[in-house]
Design a protein around this nucleic acid. Structure first.
Lengths: 226, 226
DNA sequence: ACAAAAGTGTTTCTACTACACCCATGT
DNA sequence: ACATGGGTGTAGTAGAAACACTTTTGT
């Protein structure tokens, strides 16, 4: 056995956090991703997904949550492992094996700006700035996964606040899929799944009020959805 | 930053190789997985999926192919990354982050028994022996993925020889899904997908000859299939 | 009044399911 | 002749897609 057999590698996690910007002053809601500014190394100054090294006593999931929380203050997100990127050349500053995650949070929470947090901001997924490392690739994989999961799971739940109208839900799907959906068909399917609980209240606004709903079960499910 | 921030970890790959045992003397074809005997450590003597440490200059895919080839002689397999297991306690001999792969090879090739190869054997997936480490978990994830991929990709291609009958294809699906399929419906769908090229020849045997087919494109595709 | 979102049914088409009999060959 | 796998069509059902107008509210 050569010395390579015993090689130890830095292992990192990178987290792609998606959210949806609520519709505002006439603009449709948009899918956003969270980026932080790289502080050091060859890519200093560029944007990248939050992440960092896995320490020796934690699981990968724990590392992802810890890094996300420490860099951006976000916690209690929906988190799922995405893919592991291990190309020796993916980080010119030295080989790092990175386990990528994707995460969902409801309604673009305001980011903490305290000094303890990294410089972070939400960017529209349609127009991300140039990213550090191989994070373009990670972004593509994450978006593909999110869209695919819309079709066979209820992950969309994790992007909505506790109460929402059917219009909110539909616009969410449209923002992620990047195409319009038929309102009547969408409502039929959404209601037929039996996962929505009508709250008996309405949301008022400068137009006809919409009935408010909540998800019957808060936990992610794998039943086919929409 | 504490010292954990700089921790280096052993990174390994583990490969779940599936194949299908051809039907023989009246028994239906069965889905098999390849196991090797663990030589050292707390699990010495138990069976595990082939794999090993990733060395410093290779990609993860390369490491998977190298380990598979060096331990079992198998090459040119269909290979796809599955999931990364990083629980600190998954290997009682010391923490190892393992990137699991799943691989498909046609028609259970005879395994090399030369001294340079590990002791390896094919086992029916239905009745695997007790496995080392957390490889039971890896096995479940791999089987779930294989079954899911049958539904929306043409991975089955990689499990069949260059020529086959529709009966072969159907029995392959039945072996993986673990349930019988309707022959007429299966043939309709398989042919309707336009991925099969009739070879104009038949396979003879102690019964009516079956028309031979080949896959129109050798490359894996993601078009919905069966 | 008007702007803006909510709400509602029917028809068409497609895809999936269930189901049973005859055919060609080797032994 | 018989055992074995190969080959074929139809009817019923369920789900997806296309499609336009009326309602309710705030301003």
């Amino acid at each position: 056995m050569g010395p390579e057999e015993l090689s130890l590698l830095p292992v990192a996690v990178d987290v792609v956090v998606f959210t949806v910007a609520p519709a505002s002053n006439g603009r449709k809601p948009r899918l956003l991703a969270l980026l932080v500014k790289v502080k050091e190394g060859p890519f200093a100054g560029r944007w990248a997904f939050p992440g960092g090294r896995v320490s020796s006593a934690e699981t990968l999931d724990e590392a992802a949550r810890r890094e996300l929380s420490s860099q951006t203050g976000l916690a209690r997100v929906f988190l799922e492992q995405l893919y592991t990127f291990g190309d020796p050349a993916r980080d010119p500053g030295g080989r790092v094996v990175s386990v990528a995650y994707f995460a969902l949070v409801p309604a673009a929470p305001a980011l903490r700006t305290a000094a303890r947090y990294a410089e972070a901001a939400w960017f529209p997924v349609r127009s991300l700035p140039p990213l550090a490392y191989d994070h373009d690739r990670i972004a593509r994989v994450a978006l593909r996964r999110l869209r695919a999961k819309l079709g066979y799971s209820n992950v969309a739940w994790s992007l909505l606040p506790p109460e929402f109208t059917l219009g909110d839900l539909e616009r969410l799907y449209e923002a992620i899929l990047g195409r319009p959906l038929d309102r009547r068909n969408f409502r039929k399917k959404a209601l037929a799944l039996g996962q929505l609980r009508p709250l008996g209240r309405v949301r008022r606004g400068p137009h006809r009020p919409g009935a408010l709903y909540a998800f019957a079960s808060r936990r992610p499910r794998l039943s086919p959805v929409i």
